[in-house]
Design a protein around this nucleic acid. Structure first.
Lengths: 201, 201, 201, 201
DNA sequence: CATGAATGAGTGTTCATTCAT
DNA sequence: AATGAATGAACACTCATTCAT
């Protein structure tokens, strides 16, 4: 076909719209009334579709949460990947800073929502993609492309294990669990510093 | 009497036994059949008490999960505190290694259970004590008692923020999310190394 | 179409059918097994609908009883109003006799049921229409349209207060609490005589 | 024995005290929190006795309400009987006025409570004494002792049927259901007038 | 495909009652 | 007798899911 991505079959577009409306509805209810208010009938109502239509696109309630979680992972994943590409030529410090910044900024506007997405969504379900895997992939690129500069010791995998968890935990921690008197900026700065120190050791 | 604290009022002992039986029952069901199988009637059955008795000690189902989460936090909290006391005279490296070891060992026997405890229990509820707070308190002691050796820069709080999240995330990560080919021992070792590097920087 | 009112929107007709079926079910259970047997699940079963459907039309159990009470009040109310209209040209004695007759006959087939409706239904709830109000309205019409004949003294409201309670209490009393050796006919006759004597005084 | 009624066995006195405490507790809860709050455990708590003791004196919950209803009937019954005795020498008008006055005054302080006593208590239960019977007995005395003055027609029972219901319904009506702009005094007065008119006809 | 009324298994919870102490 | 912790049958009600229209 000539412009395959530009024009979809109306059916598919319709489907995509419904799926998005459903996921947005979940987010809306989650924010407004909490997890317990998220019932399938309420989702349908808020999404403006019939409950029957919801079940046309999602096999069960679990699948809705799974899709929402996947959408979140995809969003952050893309953000992370775009960030490292954009900073391919930057110093290590700058990539890392941009990375932490990106993750923090993505979660900052609605920390509670993303907390719920991490805790309530059945993301332990089969086939759920973990954000950590995407992040690890990205960080592997960041680090391996700077191997000379970094004189990484024996095992890259060990380093990736640590760095991935540091970026993830410190970014989320900065948004959700930083000590009372610490600013978001301070938290981010110290996080970046910590990661750098580890990588340069 | 020789050990006056050994004998308590039977009433209180009975109550405590029931509470423990209920919490243990939840753990048992959680492990055996998953979260959705944890119904109040099932809890009572497995705990070997009547459903009425369960409600004598817990105002509602939520309260049961909350108590379970608190018990877990208390257990790990005590473990952490005992560990730093026992290693008061050890080198920084040894305390940290012992700390990571303790947290990892506490979670290793049943990773899935503790994952559930973190994700499914309503630990966002009012009054829930976060493990992180206990850990931060312990680490404050570890670090501030070694201030000379460490030449910690300007802000102790920032350091604590980072170290707390590193211990927590890397310990849990070691148990739950380490890369396929990495052993638990390797993960622990690299975690300790990373924390040391950061603190000595 | 020829009889446009004969066909309603299926939705509304369906709903009305279910509501009626539920109320009839309550009556059936009430008569057969008493008040304590009236559980929501039993209602659904006897009504031939699912318990879920019952809750589609009634917000809670209370609402079912309220609706039943309202239906009863409406039924008797209409009966009373029809009676006075039909006897607009009759003598006072005849209207009153017809009125007492109507109320008695409406309750006679199932005295116990109507006793329950008066005592068990939560008719003290908000918005519950009292039968007495309907009756008072009707009697106001009866009396005020015969003012000349009756030379009612100063206060019509006082007279209405008395007459309303006499019709209500004597009719119900005739059905439910007349002395052992008194026939229903005798009770009705004496009731009518008493009301007439009072009005003509 | 010398003074049999003055001194009871302590046991019996204790029992009587408990029974009274329980009935008073029901009244207290009824007034404070409504019918649904009247649970057996709550009764025991408010009465200041153990739930076990409640069941020592009442076979089941039903029996508690029955006893409360009986106590109420007894109270009003005695009041009615005392009134007619005290007015043995009064004119018919004065006895009736005193009677209506007595019943109204007994109910006026807490209309809602007595409404509940009439509607919620299982007074249809076996063996429940009806207030109407007591009232009928008293009125039989009032009327039959004035037979000459009254030239009552053929059937005394019919007259009693009507008068009993008039006293009962108009007294209760005066307290609970009189029209908005009618004073209690007006209602009582009109009630007495109506009964007199009927009896003198 | 869309609809949404209908379904009913299953839930959390209550509360009258018992009985070991 | 008195206690009150324990009991568990039974309840009102929810909500994920289906399917006739």
């Amino acid at each position: 076909m000539f412009a395959p991505s530009a024009r979809r079959k109306p059916k598919q577009r319709r489907a995509q719209q419904t799926v998005e409306a459903v996921l947005d509805a979940v987010v809306k209810i989650l924010k407004r009334d909490g997890v317990d208010a998220v019932t399938t009938n309420r989702i349908a109502e808020v999404a403006g579709v019939s409950i029957g239509s919801v079940y046309q696109y999602f096999i069960d309630k679990r699948a809705i949460f799974l899709a929402l979680h996947d959408r979140h992972v995809e969003e952050i994943g893309r953000l992370v990947e775009r960030t490292i590409v954009e900073h391919a030529a930057s110093s290590l410090e700058n990539v890392l800073r941009a990375l932490v910044e990106a993750v923090v900024d993505a979660h900052a506007p609605d920390p509670k929502l993303y907390e719920l997405l991490h805790t309530e969504a059945p993301h332990r379900a089969e086939g759920a993609r973990h954000l950590a895997e995407r992040l690890r992939g990205a960080l592997r690129l960041v680090i391996s492309s700077r191997m000379g500069e970094l004189k990484i010791p024996s095992d890259l995998e060990s380093v990736l294990f640590v760095v991935t968890h540091m970026v993830d935990a410190l970014s989320h921690g900065a948004v959700l669990r930083r000590p009372p008197r610490m600013s978001l900026a301070e938290a981010k700065e110290e996080a970046v510093r910590a990661i750098l120190v580890y990588l340069r050791a």
